[in-house]
Amino acid sequence: MERTGTRGGKPYHQTAYYISSLVRDAVVFAEGIRGHWGIENRLHWVKDVVFDEERSTIHTGQAPANLS
């Protein structure tokens, strides 16, 4: 999968590889991948923006698992 876009005002291009035993066409795989990353992006946005997770100082012991 080829990814292109802009982050922080800078263009980027990435190639991602996925391995699966499913026999499907590229359209079906692309829909599944986009669906997965759509969920991931919404979840991380909430954790980053609402919970301000990136500024958290709790990174040791059981705290990360408890907070997730």
Rank of each mutant, 00 (worst) to 15 (best):
T6N: 10
R7K: 09
G8K: 00
G8D: 00
G8S: 02
G8C: 00
G9K: 00
K10H: 02
K10N: 01
K10T: 00
P11L: 06
P11W: 03
Y12N: 01
Y12G: 01
Y12S: 03
Y12F: 15
H13C: 12
Q14F: 11
Q14R: 09
Q14K: 13
Q14V: 07
Q14A: 14
Q14L: 14
T15H: 15
T15V: 15
Y17C: 11
Y17R: 06
Y17P: 08
Y18M: 02
Y18A: 04
Y18Q: 05
I19H: 07
I19E: 03
I19V: 08
S20Q: 14
S20W: 14
S21W: 13
S21C: 07
L22D: 06
L22M: 00
L22A: 03
L22G: 02
R24H: 10
R24W: 15
D25K: 02
D25T: 01
D25A: 02
A26M: 09
A26P: 02
A26L: 10
A26W: 14
V27R: 13
V27C: 11
V27K: 09
F29P: 13
F29V: 05
A30N: 08
A30M: 08
A30R: 08
G32E: 11
G32H: 12
G32F: 05
G32K: 07
G32Y: 08
I33P: 08
I33S: 04
R34A: 03
R34Q: 12
G35L: 06
G35F: 13
G35A: 11
H36S: 10
H36T: 15
H36M: 12
W37N: 06
G38R: 04
G38N: 03
G38Q: 02
I39R: 10
I39Q: 14
E40C: 07
N41S: 14
R42F: 10
R42P: 13
R42V: 04
L43P: 12
L43W: 12
H44G: 13
H44C: 07
H44I: 06
H44N: 12
W45K: 14
W45D: 10
W45C: 12
W45P: 04
W45R: 14
V46P: 14
V46Y: 15
D48P: 03
D48H: 09
V49E: 06
V50F: 05
F51Y: 13
F51G: 09
F51T: 12
D52T: 02
E53L: 05
E53T: 03
E53Y: 01
R55F: 09
S56D: 10
S56M: 01
S56V: 03
T57K: 13
I58H: 00
H59G: 10
H59T: 11
T60Q: 11
T60E: 07
T60S: 09
G61R: 06
G61P: 00
G61D: 10
Q62V: 00
A63P: 07
A63H: 12
P64L: 01
P64I: 01
A65T: 01
A65S: 05
N66F: 08
N66Q: 08
N66G: 02
L67F: 04
L67G: 02
L67R: 05
S68C: 06
S68F: 06
S68V: 04
S68M: 08
S68D: 08
